[in-house]
Write a protein that binds this DNA or RNA. Structure first.
Lengths: 349, 349
DNA sequence: TTGTATGCGTTATCAA
DNA sequence: TTGATAACGCATACAA
């Protein structure tokens, strides 16, 4: 007896009845509204937890027009890069009581549009996008016409107005090439992702620029471009090693690619760095624990997510012009690099 | 001119006006309701994409009482274990057009309750929980009183009615101990997580049971229990190695712990498997690429997520009794194990 | 300082 | 086969 609708969760109405006030008053108490007596506030608060009241976020959102949620679209959440970014986003969102809604696109550009639409139907207040492919015209047009605030992570989509977080791949790659050349390497290979996504373009461009600046040619077939996968990394590394005149140093431009490369080097018993110097992408357990430890181009991945969320929250709050945040890269030297030709320098472990 | 409320997204009303029918009819078309002329259906469909109409999921949910979303509560999404599970959940959810809402508890039991409450306010239809601590009384009481369908991942919470996905740690650990003993190891150490969480309890129990079954004592100090972190793994490994009579074989019961252990073995130049045989947890890049490759107790992590989502969807659909799904473990033998005392067997790489 | 009443965009009930 | 309309739970303009 007493409560009539025992089945469903208590609402504002139930709390109001229990406290002997109106729903408006309860609402004011919940939202910290003005003009509420301390006496009434306490009364209502008591009723709320007597009934175990939990505000109905959907109803509130329908009324206010904001969901306090942001969508994160990602090609594969199981990828350490993206899950670390997700952590960064979520950590930055929680203090403002925003929620992250995750949508996995499975690296499929068509599906990508679907999941974005799905998020929009749920009326997320903003979107953070780690796009699988920034060249799809359908996606580009769709995003260009979008009102919802957007943050692009290391992606450039023509005609789309969005905040961006860009990783400075060029600096890391330039440093790596310069270091290897200083050590006497004139035959440096590169394995990286396709041009359909910014990192692939940037890494390749920086690699070529660094050689051009040094007035050094890149031997034919030394740049391998393909999927950001272990399989491609392995295949490309094997192909490179099989060349009549293989590279004496290699840059693996992508974390998954790196794993494939390491697997091949290990399987073929290639001695690193004696036979091949190696610079890989991203400071991970795998690169650190490989023997020898692998020199890497590293960046603060967590910060990418944090920064993205910060940009988005900022825009949701105050609006303003589109902004671009830049994440630096650093070359971390470890045992996988040695001089070529001349006398070897001191070996790191 | 024409549309009055150009600012906000078009609603059912706008579509109805544009098509010259009632909102009820539009709603029927959207939901594939019965009794709609093909003529009208086409008319409405045309109006919908003329206006770029997107259904308002929140309003619909408010009306229907279901959000078609499930919350996944996780102690750290950046952890590969949980991000892989998340992928499994999401993949199983998407075909049914359910969405995953992620909530990171930061391994903090108090915060854990907060994020669950937050998810509930958003009226998720169900919850998948990778709890950081299953012993918290507050959390236990809260969950016990919950109406929302629950799936516990490798956790046991007293008094809580929920579907469960349980990993069969015991089988893997038993196989590992048996294999090591067959190879002559009588001094096997274990580093694993605390009893506050099922895996820690199970792994320890299986380790002790396996020894008891063999009538073999476990040397004092050979079982180290602590945080599931790299730091603890490293610290415990160092302590074990420093003992006057250190173990000849070691089981690292946790992926993070494993990384810490590997780091120490490498730093101290411990020769694996000559000086120490090693069995670690989870088949990862790090364990595979370590030299030598590390034997592991593996399980299909992705399947944990998939199974959890399947159980939940099932319950959301048909209800029925609580169910328990079991995920097997397997011992994968690689080069990190060798016989002790007798003649070494054939070495794997 | 508090209460009443309206509407957010839907679905579902009932009449037509 | 279609249309009018009442909720869903809340926030807020306005009245008191």
């Amino acid at each position: 007896m007493g409560r009539t609708r025992a089945a469903s969760a208590p609402g504002l109405k139930d709390v109001a009845a229990h406290a002997g006030v109106s729903v408006a008053t309860v609402s004011r108490v919940i939202n910290g509204g003005p003009y509420v007596t301390e006496r009434v506030r306490a009364l209502v608060a008591a009723s709320m937890d007597a009934l175990g009241y939990e505000p109905h976020a959907l109803a509130r959102s329908l009324r206010t027009g904001e969901t306090r949620s942001v969508g994160y679209v990602v090609s594969d959440i199981a990828n350490a890069l993206f899950s670390t970014i997700a952590r960064g986003i979520d950590d930055a969102l929680q203090p403002q009581s925003y929620t992250m809604v995750l949508a996995n696109s499975r690296s499929d550009p068509a599906h990508e549009l679907d999941v974005i639409r799905h998020l929009l139907r749920r009326r997320v207040d903003g979107l953070v996008l780690s796009l699988a492919d920034e060249t799809s015209p359908a996606l580009r047009d769709f995003l260009a016409g979008l009102r919802t605030p957007l943050v692009l992570l290391d992606r450039e989509v023509e005609g789309v107005l969005a905040d961006q977080v860009l990783v400075d791949h060029a600096a890391g790659v330039a440093a790596a090439v310069a270091h290897l050349r200083d050590l006497g390497h004139t035959r440096v290979g590169l394995i990286t992702g396709e041009a359909s996504t910014r990192p692939g373009r940037e890494i390749r461009r920086a690699f070529e620029d660094a050689h051009a600046a040094a007035g050094a040619p890149i031997p034919g077939g030394f740049v391998r471009v393909g999927a950001l996968s272990e399989a491609f990394g392995a295949q490309a590394a094997a192909a490179l090693l099989q060349m009549p005149e293989p590279p004496t140093a290699l840059i693996a431009g992508g974390a998954q690619i790196t794993v494939g490369v390491l697997r091949v080097l290990r399987r073929q018993g290639v001695r690193v760095p004696e036979e091949l110097s190696l610079v890989a992408y991203d400071d991970t357990d795998a690169t650190e624990l490989f023997s020898p430890s692998v020199s890497v181009i590293a960046r603060d991945i967590y910060a990418i997510g944090q920064t993205a969320a910060a940009l988005l929250l900022d825009r949701l709050g105050s609006g303003g012009a589109q902004r671009v945040a830049r994440i630096p890269t650093a070359l971390i030297l470890r045992g996988s690099i040695a001089a070529w030709g001349g006398s070897p320098g001191p070996l790191l472990t």
